[in-house]
Amino acid sequence: MPAKTNRGPVAGPANRRALISAARTVFAESGYDAPLNAVARRAGVGQGSLYRHFPDRVSLAVAVFDENIGELEAFARSKRSSLGGLIELVIEQAIVSTALIELTMNSADDERVRVLGERVAALVDEVVAVERDRGRIGAEVDSADVLLAISMLAAIVSRTPEQDRRSVAERAWALFPASFAVTVHGAGMVE
């Protein structure tokens, strides 16, 4: 087998993207304690490249969540934005990112993780304001309530066996609509 050609700095952005993608997969398959060399192997890069981009586990988790939050921010600013849609997207992300949820929960005092939390709070503020303007959420409901619901959902999903995550998330979310004064449709999810 021929040795890999070192492409130098031009490979950096592609390596970073490959590492983030690999981290999603490796942590989803092997959990929080998955060896970081497995991430590098899956990405097809050397361990040195991994540590150049992500010097620790939290850095890697922050990069994955940064992308996840980018998706949530785009949704919150879209015309189809709704509380139920936001929660559905959070659930989809949580189902495949359970180990990363645990990792960031354990690192809540880390400034990098706090910044992510601030971004989530800001996008939830946007969605709550839109839902309130549309008359689909009670005036007594504030962003802190929605953030609490999201945290509870993420926590329960992260501790549920993979095959049961979707149904458990839907059951858990079904408990909130009456409190938020929104209409429930379908399998317990909010429109």
Rank of each mutant, 00 (worst) to 15 (best):
V64R: 11
V64N: 13
V64L: 15
V64Y: 12
V64E: 15
D66L: 04
D66I: 02
D66A: 11
E67N: 08
E67S: 09
N68W: 07
N68D: 15
N68V: 06
I69F: 05
G70Q: 08
E71D: 13
E71P: 01
E71M: 00
L72K: 01
E73S: 14
A74D: 13
A74M: 13
A74H: 12
A74T: 14
F75P: 10
A76T: 12
S78H: 11
R80P: 11
R80H: 09
S81N: 11
S81E: 13
S81F: 11
S82I: 02
L83N: 00
L83F: 02
G84N: 10
G84V: 06
G85I: 09
I87H: 03
I87S: 07
I87P: 15
I87D: 09
I87W: 00
I87R: 04
E88L: 10
E88R: 06
V90Q: 15
V90I: 15
I91R: 11
I91N: 12
I91D: 15
E92C: 02
E92L: 06
E92F: 01
E92V: 01
Q93A: 10
A94G: 15
A94N: 15
A94D: 15
I95K: 02
I95A: 01
V96W: 01
S97Y: 00
A99L: 09
A99H: 06
A99C: 09
L100F: 10
L100N: 10
E102S: 07
T104S: 10
T104D: 12
M105H: 06
M105Q: 08
N106W: 05
N106T: 06
S107Y: 03
S107Q: 04
S107T: 03
D110F: 02
D110G: 01
D110N: 05
E111Q: 10
E111D: 14
R112V: 03
V115M: 05
L116V: 03
E118Y: 02
R119H: 07
R119N: 04
R119K: 12
R119W: 04
V120K: 03
